[in-house]
Structures are given as structure tokens and as C-alpha cells.
């Protein structure tokens, strides 16, 4: 039995469907990635999974507990790490942790031990008595993560854990997430719009776009199935003729076109040599101005599945 099971989970806000019916299983000890651009519905989805938002349809089971019927038991098994830095800035790291631990019913010696453990995990033992407002963005992110772990949840849901952090803190957060699974047997559901983060951390990934799931598999499986590399070709010539000629080499998306040229993205079904591209463009009466290759990755998977890149959505 999966640790987290979602069946047909969806949310409407009036006439707007924020999340369509969503199915998901997260296994014990797994890091699962929920990938998608801003506004894809990731935060709404995880909000339903941990009881912050009431779903319009579907069900959630956590560690065998139905979230609707046995809400407290289900929630006790979850540690939510929100995207916002959900901390009290005027309090110290230790005072913050004492409060959040107290909410989960931890008391006295057990609470003190858990706080020490969480501070150590966040690398903040030396700064534990300072007000959080004096912390750097990365330190706050680490404390934000630690505050969701005090009650030792079986499933940790982290929402965009590395937004706005420096490289050092990002690496620290990655190491912490890996340690949660490897050393403490926790499962992690990690939402992100950073492809590299998901590729580095997650065994499996679901890709969301505009409120619906567009693909789900292991990272390697997705790249293998959808993630052929791509070539970005800028050219002079008649866009329709050039695009048609390149179509023989792979999937073509005409991204930009003008009177005397344009830009085409060529998704490779099989590796394409640059010389073949140049010859195809010239055969269509055009001329290649620049050629840029992208390696197979979740970025190219996303592009292949949605027809647009994450950067387009962020812009």
C-alpha cells in the first residue's frame, strides 16, 4: 500500500477548474517530484493533500488514514513545508521550533530533543537563539524545512523548497531531503518548477500543466519516452518552406517567423547531426544563422508534452 494515495482529486473555484481529477501514489522512502510552471496547480494539489484546502472531488489517504474521515491521524503523518517562509521573525529559531513542536503535542524532554535534532539538521545550532529576522534567506529556508519535521512525519510535503536561496543553502536542503529518506525512512513529495532540482532529487515525477497531470514516470523513463534533445535553429528564408524541410528530421515547432526568416525548434526523435540541419535549410532556399542544441532533460520532456517551456510560463 502506498503511503500517500490520491484518487480523482480536484478543485474548482467557482467556474474555474484549478485542478482536474488527479491520481497519485507516493511510496515509502521515495522522493516524488511534482513539476510544473507557476500556476500549474501544484500548490492547490498539495494543499488538498494535507487538508489546508477542501477538495471539490476525490479522496486522499495518508498512511492508511482517509483525510476526510480520519483527518487528525492523516495530518499527523504529514509534515508540510510551505513555499512561504512560515516563521515568526521576531522569535528565535528555537522559539519557533518550540511553538511548532507544541502544536503537534510534543512536550518537555521529547520536544527539546526534537528541537536539537531539527536545528542540527538545518545547520543552525550555533544561531538557534538569534531572532529569525537576522537570518539570511537560505537560513530561513532551512529553518522552514526543519519546522515541518519536528513531529517526525512519515510524509514530508515540501513546496518549492529552494526558491530564492543561495547555492550553499540549496545543496544543504538537497542533502537534508535525501537524508530524510535514507536515514529516517520518510517519504518526500517535492513540488518545484526547477527541472534540475527534480532531476537531482526525485526517483519519480509527475508533470502538471494548467491544472492537469500531463505525464508521470521515473525521471529516466520520462526522458527516455519524451525527452529527446532539441535543436533551436535560427534561419533566413521562407519560414513555411524551411519548417517543412526540417520536418523530415523530427518534430518541428515554428517559434518565431518574419518576412525574411525565423526560429524553429526541432525535437529530435533520433540524434540529428548539425550538417543535416544545414543541408535541409539550404535545400529549402534558406540559410542557417545559428544552431543551438539542448541535451535530453525534463526541460525537453516538458516542452515535448506541453508545447511550451517553463520559462514561457514564468515570463
Amino acid at each position: 500500500m502506498a503511503l500517500l494515495e490520491c484518487r480523482g482529486l480536484g478543485k474548482d473555484y467557482g467556474a474555474l477548474c484549478a485542478v482536474e481529477a488527479f491520481d497519485l501514489d507516493v511510496e515509502e522512502g521515495e522522493v516524488f517530484g511534482l513539476l510544473g510552471p507557476n500556476g500549474a496547480g501544484k500548490t492547490t494539489t498539495i494543499s488538498m493533500m494535507c487538508g489546508v484546502v477542501t477538495p471539490s472531488r476525490g479522496s486522499v489517504r495518508v498512511a492508511g488514514h482517509d483525510l476526510a474521515r480520519d483527518s487528525f491521524a492523516a495530518r499527523r503523518a504529514i509534515g508540510l513545508v510551505p513555499q512561504d517562509l512560515a516563521l515568526y521573525e521576531d522569535l528565535s529559531a528555537r522559539q519557533n521550533l518550540r511553538f511548532f513542536g507544541g502544536i503537534y503535542g510534543l512536550r518537555a524532554g521529547e520536544l527539546a530533543a526534537r528541537i536539537d535534532w531539527a536545528l542540527s539538521l538545518a545547520g543552525l545550532v550555533d544561531r538557534s537563539t538569534e531572532p529569525v529576522r537576522r537570518f539570511s534567506g537560505g537560513m530561513k529556508r532551512r529553518l522552514n524545512l526543519a519546522a515541518g519535521l519536528l513531529h517526525r512525519p512519515r510524509l514530508v510535503i515540501v513546496d518549492e523548497p529552494t526558491v530564492g536561496v543561495d547555492l550553499q543553502s540549496r545543496n544543504h536542503i538537497f542533502a537534508t531531503i535525501r537524508a530524510l529518506c535514507a536515514d529516517h525512512g520518510m517519504s518526500v513529495l517535492n513540488t518545484s518548477h526547477y527541472m534540475e532540482e527534480v532531476e537531482l532529487l526525485c526517483q519519480r515525477v509527475a508533470i502538471m500543466d494548467r491544472g492537469r497531470e500531463v505525464a508521470r514516470d521515473s525521471v529516466d523513463g520520462l526522458i527516455g519516452r519524451h525527452g529527446g534533445g532539441s535543436l533551436e535553429v535560427e534561419f533566413r528564408g521562407e519560414p513555411a518552406r524551411v519548417a517543412s524541410a526540417l520536418g523530415a528530421l523530427g518534430g518541428v515547432a515554428l517559434e518565431e517567423q518574419g518576412a525574411a526568416g525565423g526560429r524553429v525548434r526541432l525535437r529530435e526523435k533520433e540524434p540529428v547531426k548539425p550538417g543535416a540541419v544545414v543541408r535541409a535549410v539550404e535545400a529549402a532556399g534558406g540559410e542557417v544563422e545559428s544552431l543551438r542544441a539542448s541535451k535530453p532533460s525534463l526541460e525537453t520532456v516538458f516542452l515535448a508534452l506541453t508545447g511550451h517551456s517553463l520559462r514561457d510560463d514564468e515570463a
Partner: peptide, 13 residues
């Protein structure tokens, strides 16, 4: 605004 309510709403309370 700070999102602490969000964290508390996910707790068994």
C-alpha cells in the same frame, strides 16, 4: 500574510 496559518492548518488541530 506570513503563511504560518497555512502551516498550522496542516497540523492536527
Amino acid at each position: 500574510k506570513t503563511g504560518t496559518f497555512r502551516r498550522l492548518l496542516a497540523a492536527p488541530v
